[in-house]
């Protein structure tokens, strides 16, 4: 009965990333897209939040958005998974509902 939470804004610009993490329940999936991928780079201010979210949720980033911003997969917070557009569709289909943290 998982919820897919999508975040498309940088955590430095908007609070939607933190809000999303605050409203997950164990087993939920969080997907960073567009500027949302910025929170998944290791060493950033929000990296620890991503790590703690990984304790009971899965965290994904959309690879094309990562590449567009020059972030290598090796530069991600450990445990964050990359997916492509097909993987995005699979996640939406797998989850029972989607909440977009606009």
């Amino acid at each position: 009965m998982a919820t897919l939470h999508t975040v498309n804004k940088s955590p430095f610009e908007r609070s939607s990333f933190i809000s999303a993490l605050n409203h997950t329940v164990p087993g939920d999936k969080v997907l960073m897209i567009e500027d949302g991928v910025i929170s998944a780079r290791k060493g950033n201010t929000f990296a620890d939040l991503v790590s703690s979210a990984l304790s009971d949720c899965s965290v994904y980033v959309l690879a094309p958005d990562l590449a567009a911003r020059g972030i290598a997969e090796g530069d991600l917070v450990e445990g964050v998974q990359t997916i492509d557009y097909g993987g995005f569709v699979d996640l939406v289909a797998e989850c029972d509902r989607t909440q977009s943290w606009l």
Binding site: M1, T3, N22, H23, T24, V25, D28, D96, R97, T98, Q99, S100, W101, L102
Partner: peptide, 18 residues
């Protein structure tokens, strides 16, 4: 509470996000 809000969200068939 925030925790209850998270629970409410997890119990829906459909979420419309604004």
């Amino acid at each position: 509470s925030r925790a209850d809000m998270a629970k409410i969200m997890s119990e829906q068939d459909v979420i419309l996000s604004f």
